[in-house]
Design a binder for these strands. Structure first.
Lengths: 174, 174
DNA sequence: CAGTTGTTTCAGTATTGACAGAAACAACGG
DNA sequence: CCGTTGTTTCTGTCAATACTGAAACAACTG
């Protein structure tokens, strides 16, 4: 994998080489980790690459940097855009599409994982509706529903917390 | 799939049939849902079956009820035991192993999903260590680390909340 | 309105993982 | 100590998914 640093000037040559190695490793590990998150390896590497490249990146560049096909980049970008981990940006006077990591990337990574819990509530609900009032499984289904309710609360709290953090970072009154 | 209800007496025959249908559907859906949680379909169905069967269940019974091989039950039970979603119980004078849903099953389901986030922190840490002080990716890695820290806090809070709930249910001083 | 560049869709391939059946293993009972 | 019962490990098969290269498509430029 090739990773370009922005200024390639030669004032501290040893650092650049090590940085590239470090970043390459980081991007690769992000790929592996995101696999567990239901995003494909390439998707994770894209997230990693965008993270360590603080500027808009074209899909062409990603394909080259990550040494994968353009089609894979395209497919994975679509997924990442839908998940709102990545945003598309346009640069004036340039018809190429560029992409950056969304400000909400981490928050949304968390949401994805927590939101997957919520369907359990509906499942338990359906179960309760279909069972006669004295069925022994009822209390357990009920407590499952309660638990999912708690997760919903947590989810809301993280949104609030994240919200207030962003406000602090952006300065008050933003 | 066959689901046995505990008392099979005939005082309200119509209910039993519908219950069985409902539960069968529920168990099946749990399987599908848990697939998204990194547990296999069979693992999810085991969780579902244990949920709606409020008594210790042998692996033999699971295999029959879910219509899957004993080996699959065995493999999946090992995973579920490690994840602490299921507990093994012994009945005196019986050499068969029985299993019940753990009291912490839901809490641990949540933990599994949140804990998967934590390795991100280490990844970011390694990245920071390997990069020279002026590298433009540093601030982003730092803020990633901060975010994971927040998730850790949330995780701890849910443990506390769950803890206090259980105490309420069990009665004070337990 | 061609020609060029960039992006998406499609069809085939390869890798991964779940699952079943059989064999091996362990533990208990006569 | 042999036979029976219960559980785990192993090997092969099948299905699902990620990925690629090629073709189709879209958008801009001269």
């Amino acid at each position: 994998m090739e990773l370009e640093s922005s200024g390639e000037s030669a004032d501290n040559p040893p650092s650049k080489g090590e940085d590239r190695q470090t970043l390459s490793q980081f991007v690769e590990n992000m790929g592996l980790l995101y696999q567990d998150y239901g995003v494909s390896r390439i998707g994770g590497r894209i997230v990693g690459y965008l993270l360590v490249t603080p500027r808009p990146v074209s899909s062409e560049e990603m394909a080259e940097a990550l040494q994968v096909s353009r089609s894979s980049v395209s497919t994975n970008l679509r997924t990442l855009l839908m998940a709102e981990l990545v945003e598309k940006v346009s640069l004036p006077g340039d018809r190429v599409d560029y992409y950056v990591l969304s400000d909400l990337a981490w928050q949304n990574t968390l949401e994805m994982r927590l939101a997957a819990i919520l369907p359990l509530k509906e499942l338990a609900e359906e179960g309760l509706e279909g069972l006669y009032p004295d069925h022994p499984a009822r209390p357990r289904l009920q407590s499952l529903m309660d638990w999912v309710g708690m997760v919903e609360t947590i989810l809301q709290r993280t949104r609030d917390e994240w919200q207030s953090r962003s406000e602090v970072l952006a300065g008050p009154g933003s």
